[in-house]
Structures are given as C-alpha cells and as structure tokens.
Nucleic acid binder design. Structure first.
Length: 258
DNA sequence: TCCCATGTTGCTAA
DNA sequence: GTTAGCAACATGGG
C-alpha cells in the first residue's frame, strides 16, 4: 500500500511522537514477525526512511526496519481501549503505543537491521537525466517497470510511477532504452513535483491508507490516471485505459502519452 | 463466484 | 544476462 510519500508521512509523524521516547515493552502478536526483541528501555534516537521502509534507530546501536508491504499500517495510539482488528505488533513507549496493523500479514519487521544512519537518496534528487538515460540504455523492459526498480528508485510504487509517466506524457509500455533525453528530463521533473506534493498531502488514500494518527491522505483527489479507467484524460480529453504492464494494473491515456 | 489490490521474492522458461 | 510470467504470502472488497 504505502509508497514513498506515505512512508515519508509516517516517518515525519513518528518523529513528532517517539523521538527521544523510551520503548518500555514489545508485544509480538503474529509469530510470522519473529521472536520479540530485547530492546526494552532503549530510547529512539532517529527515524529514517529507507525507500518504502521505516527504520527506527535506538540508542545503543539497535535498529529496526519496518516494511508495510501491501496493507500494513502504523497507528499511534494514546487513547487505549478500542479493540483493533488485525493487530500484529504493539510497542509500548512512554507516552503512547505504536501499533502495527496488517490484515494480509505481508508486512515485515527486521528487529536487527544493520543499515546505516541515513536512508538512500531520494529518487531523482541527484539523478541527472543523462544518468537516467545511461542507466536505461540496455534495458528493453517497459519504462514503468524500470521506474519500479527499488534499487534505482527507492520508494517509487505503482500509483506514483503511473502518475509520473502521465505527467511526463510517456507511454508506460515504452521500452526504457527508447526513452529520449528530453523525456527523461520531463520524467525527473514530474517525479520531483509529484512526490513533493504527495508528501505535502500526506499521501494517497484509495482504499485503506491512513497516516500515523488514522487520518486519510489528500493526494487521491489529485490523481490524474490511477483507477480512472474510462474517464476522460485531464490533459487531452481522451479515454484513459487500464492495461497490465509488468503484471501490475496500469493506467494511461493512449492519446497523449507516447 | 470471480477478479482485483499502493509490495516483494523466488522460480521457471524463453 | 534479461525479461516475462506466474505463484506465493493472506485477506477483504467490489
């Protein structure tokens, strides 16, 4: 479910509530997550995003990495008592509880993360279009699949990849190596703008995304193509089509995305 | 009943 | 080596 803007939203909100707070105890309710870790008593030193994952860095050198996959949610709860469905993990901090909720149980928590103090650079932040084109030069897979490569663009997911390609007017099925320099420039520009705006809007709620405090995001109101099959293209009025690209539901306007 | 799902991994085969 | 396709993970919604 969550892509870069949603995970970034969680990280920012987590910093508001758990930075410097002490972790008192941990309850693992789903054995798939592994045995409960022995970090009780440690205070949170830093919260960083690693692509689509949240890393909690504790004093003492311990780090956790939380990946929400499709349906994982993090919820900060100060008002205890309401029963919560699909609760998988409870972290008791001084001041509140951090809950991991996940109906499909795909989310993972690495209680022994080894990665460093900072996350990978934001996709497109430093990437120059010439570098993108070089990277794509030998790849004939669809440009959308290329954008979903987490090693190259950590945090980009299906919704935002589709929106970025729409904004750049590039057909998601185009082989990556055929994308021109000028198109890479448009893609990089669109990616920066869309991701920034989506973070500002606290993410996209099309089904069940909620932020750390249970509120839906706002970016769904600004999606141009995702989940809009049959609708008019906001740019040219053409009909938006849905088509599988690299095994994922994909939306584009065949009239103005070339 | 069937199809779909904002993610990732691992396998098989071309 | 690259890529496509599929299944798996497990559940809920339309």
């Amino acid at each position: 479910m969550p892509e870069l803007p949603e995970v970034e939203t969680l990280c920012r909100q987590l910093r508001q509530v758990i930075l410097g707070r002490r972790l008192l105890s941990v309850e693992v309710l789903d054995e798939r997550l592994g045995p409960p870790p022995a970090v009780a008593g440690l205070a949170v030193r830093q919260v960083v995003r690693r692509g689509k994952a949240v890393a909690l860095l504790f004093h003492g050198g311990v780090a956790w990495k939380i990946h929400l996959r499709m349906t994982g949610r993090l919820l900060w709860e100060t008002d205890y008592g309401l029963p919560v469905d699909h609760l998988r993990l409870i972290c008791h901090f001084d001041g509140g509880r951090l809950l991991l909720i996940d109906p499909r149980r795909f989310a993972t928590v690495d209680f022994d993360d080894e990665a460093g103090p900072s996350g990978p650079p934001d996709p497109f932040a430093a990437e120059d279009p010439a570098g993108l084109r070089r990277e794509a030069a030998r790849r004939r897979l669809p440009v959308k699949a290329f954008l979903l490569d987490q090693r190259l663009f950590p945090g980009i997911g299906n919704i935002y990849a589709g929106e970025i390609l729409f904004a750049a007017a590039v057909d998601p099925r185009r082989p990556a190596r055929d994308v021109t320099q000028e198109e890479w420039e448009r893609i990089a520009r669109a990616a920066r703008a869309i991701l920034r705006e989506a973070v500002r809007a606290r993410g996209t709620t099309v089904s069940d995304w909620r932020d750390l405090f249970g509120r839906p995001g706002e970016y769904q109101h600004r999606l141009k193509v995702y989940d809009r099959r049959g609708g008019p293209c906001p740019r040219c009025g053409g009909e938006i089509v849905r088509e599988k690209v690299c095994g994922r539901g994909s939306y584009h306007c065949p009239r103005c995305q070339r």
